[in-house]
Design a protein around this nucleic acid. Structure first.
Lengths: 249, 249
DNA sequence: TTATTATTGTAACATATTGATACAATAAAA
DNA sequence: TTTTATTGTATCAATATGTTACAATAATAA
């Protein structure tokens, strides 16, 4: 929940936004056999946080999440799913936001709307690491990928949000065909298995995995991939029915 | 989202509550082979709605949901799960609430907090029909069970909320052992199968169902049930490990 | 008492799914 | 040409699920 700050800093009442409601998005990517998460780093504060934002008072909540996502990744048509509302009272802690504003040379009044209690709607997104172009917002130094298991200390309860997002992703993985959203356009069976193994955090049986994936009838063989290794070249596959890749909610 | 009205009607600013945030709970029961839902009927308006409420500004959102549930059913320790946030702008329609207040002889000012846009957190609960004691709130004529497939016209998007709750329940049904929360203390295998069939809206194979349920190792045979029918008496079962019945979130 | 009837509990077999092993095919390097 | 590692797939084993069948009852009727 950290966007449009610039314009909203002076907007003490939070006019034009739904009060007390934030959006936090866990944007997953996959690269080099590792799950990645997009994080923002705030200027002069050392604070890391999930990309997020607020909801315009004439905007759907899901629409706001899509806007945030699009602003951080420069991608549209992305798989995005709402997964949980974080609404514990214990989340309420204005210190980090105060620090962020202070670091920008702004001393907010105590009743500034951003310093009040917020409830946050959690979303997770699955993006093609190679196509996303991480872009910081006005109050951030950087927007970068971090290995899921090597994250810096995060603001507020953002680590918990990520944990819950991962749990949800694990549950959803074989129920829907969403894993493909994390792949590049073309990939080998090994790539795909590596993705599944990383998400589920367990080894899978190669033969059974391949049989199952091919049995789904959604993979199209594109070409062979000469890796330069001293062995048979694997096939490159493409996800056939891109209809089901994206879930516009 | 219709509770504590009495006290809040005069509270034009909504002091003490999180602004713009409501809770709606789909309370499922099961009786006579039918899924039931608890609905409130508002006084003098003909409006039906899901039990709901607002969140105190020093209260967890999940806690508020539990409070609402407890107030409507006089039960605690109930299976309750948050399942979706309804945040479309198109939900925004102050007419029903205005009608409810008018029916109570109160003409709210246009800027009354209850007439503003609300985002609603959806919860579903699974209760033992025979133990719940439906209780209306101050602004309702009645709080009663309705057959899921014979519901009256509902306020706002409450029908959609129920639809989504049912979808979630169907998905969660075999992933977790939550079906038992809808059963009475003791039940026959036929009862349980009927519950599953009703929720999933499809016939199940008797032999396979029984085998699977017994294979879970969580059913305890209690006694036999003499139904008075001209046939073998079925066993009564009890859910053994009541640890997993309740999910306190 | 003794059939008759409907329903339950479970065995038995068929089919489908997944786990485990094996092996031929094959790029590149030795 | 041989060696090496990896891929694609066949084969069989183990498990899970679908299907049929049937003995074991409670009540009822004869």
């Amino acid at each position: 929940m950290n966007q449009e700050f610039h314009r909203q800093e002076g907007n003490i009442e939070g006019t034009g936004f739904l009060p007390g409601l934030a959006i936090d998005t866990v944007i997953f990517g996959f690269h080099d056999g590792q799950l990645k998460v997009l994080l923002l780093e705030y200027k002069n504060t050392g604070l890391y946080a999930l990309p997020g934002g607020f909801v315009h008072d004439d905007e759907d909540v899901n629409e706001a999440a899509r806007r945030v996502l699009q602003n951080r990744t420069a991608l549209n048509n992305i798989y995005l799913e709402q997964f949980y509302v974080f609404g514990d009272y214990s989340r309420y802690d204005p210190t980090p936001l105060k620090a962020i504003m202070k670091a920008r040379g702004y001393s907010p009044p105590a009743n500034h709307w951003l310093l009040k209690r917020f409830v946050s709607v959690g979303y997770y997104a699955l993006v093609d690491f190679t196509r996303a172009i991480p872009a910081p917002d006005e109050i951030s130094d950087s927007c970068n990928w971090y290995n899921l298991h090597e994250l810096p200390a995060l603001m507020q309860d953002h680590q918990q949000i990520i944990n819950k997002a991962l749990e949800t992703l694990q549950r959803d993985l074989d129920r829907k065909l969403i894993g493909f959203n994390l792949m590049t356009e073309e990939f080998t069976m090994g790539d795909l298995q590596s993705l599944y193994e990383t998400i589920l955090n367990k080894k899978l049986i190669r033969a059974a995995f391949q049989r199952k994936m091919l049995g789904l009838g959604i993979l199209e063989r594109v070409a062979k991939k000469w890796t330069g290794g001293a062995h048979k070249a694997p096939y490159l596959y493409k996800f056939a029915s891109n209809k089901t890749m994206v879930d516009k909610s």
